[in-house]
Nucleic acid binder design. Sequence first.
DNA 1: TTATATAATGACACCCTGTCACCTGTCAAA
DNA 2: TTTGACAGGTGACAGGGTGTCATTATATAA
Lengths: 205, 205
Amino acid sequence: MPTSTFFNLPAEKRIKLLCAIRDEFSRVQFDKVSINKIIHAAEISRGSFYQYFADKHDMLDFVLTEYKKQMLVHAKASLQANNGNIFELFYDILEFTISFTTEESGHKFCNNLFADIKVNSDFYLKKPECPNGMEWMNELQPFININMLDVRDKEDFNNMLGILSSVCRDATAEVFLNLADREHTKQNYKQKLELLKRGFINNKE
Amino acid sequence: MPTSTFFNLPAEKRIKLLCAIRDEFSRVQFDKVSINKIIHAAEISRGSFYQYFADKHDMLDFVLTEYKKQMLVHAKASLQANNGNIFELFYDILEFTISFTTEESGHKFCNNLFADIKVNSDFYLKKPECPNGMEWMNELQPFININMLDVRDKEDFNNMLGILSSVCRDATAEVFLNLADREHTKQNYKQKLELLKRGFINNKE
DNA sequence: TTATATAATGACACCCTGTCACCTGTCAAA
DNA sequence: TTTGACAGGTGACAGGGTGTCATTATATAA
């Protein structure tokens, strides 16, 4: 979490810094992100930067948190539009994330950021009390229609969420690391969601 | 890939270096791994190191490749012992990976390495022709009993593999990042595999 | 105007990676 | 025995990085 000093910054200065951060994240992946380059572009001193952020990682947390906020808003809307259908939700989450990339700079930003999400396990996997990751799912839970799901055990619902988030994350990585044709990935992701619905086992005796 | 110079090294020297590498990987995660510390411990010069490995990443590739080799052997044995049951295979893969941690140093080694696997997307997700990741699965495919699976479309099998590997990876990460009690993770992983078998949707009308 | 708190600064200590001109030892041919 | 070629070894160096801290500047309150 950035310090209060950061949030108290005059708007102009804060925005300049935010732009510098966004540009640097667009340039390279997190491990290559250079604080030197950021402070130079934002025209602030080294010391100031460390008055705003505890360290480099703190800055990453901030960036990811901003993304999550927007994602949550979108996710809630999706659930409300689809009667709490969790499969539609997860399809929409991928779509939303991809849609960030309309313009060129946003595209590179996401590329680097989501390559990093694999690094930054904090994003999906964080709290011990939430081992399936996506702790922010808690906020969405009330909006999910659980009746359509075959929940037999108290852990079943959490495990379903866990599986869905694992699959969603890999699809996201596939898109942003340009590992496969984007449409192909989306198509396969859709099919994966269908596979999750119906199960892997052949029931024809 | 390390150079031929590396493989031609006298056994004693090579082993000393390999130990230094293993110790350093046990100490910290890849981004903090210090070549300085390695060459000091192995008592070789900086220049020598770069005669063996192209760069830091080349060394990581080498370490992961060694792991994969052993994993493959184990996976084949698992499939043969279980009539090609892919669910048993994936359960065994997690068990195998965890079993690397019996002794303390191995434990830390895996902790750091598997935290890095999230970084090193090469490990699971690599070739464009293999977008679901785990290209090494190709080698195992002939041993898998496909009849038990509800494969309706030509992509279905690949997608099932993709889902299984995503879920397996997250369980691995959960264990090595100490995000949850190990037994709890294993229990949930087992349940997740059952959920994949039977599907998420409630079929009672 | 003075006192106090808050913010800004940049030199500094200490770390890193990858390169390159040079050194050493070995071995085959002359 | 001398020569030369070559694989392997070396460490100083260039160019980078992060986080700290004593000091200076600015704003706010008394």
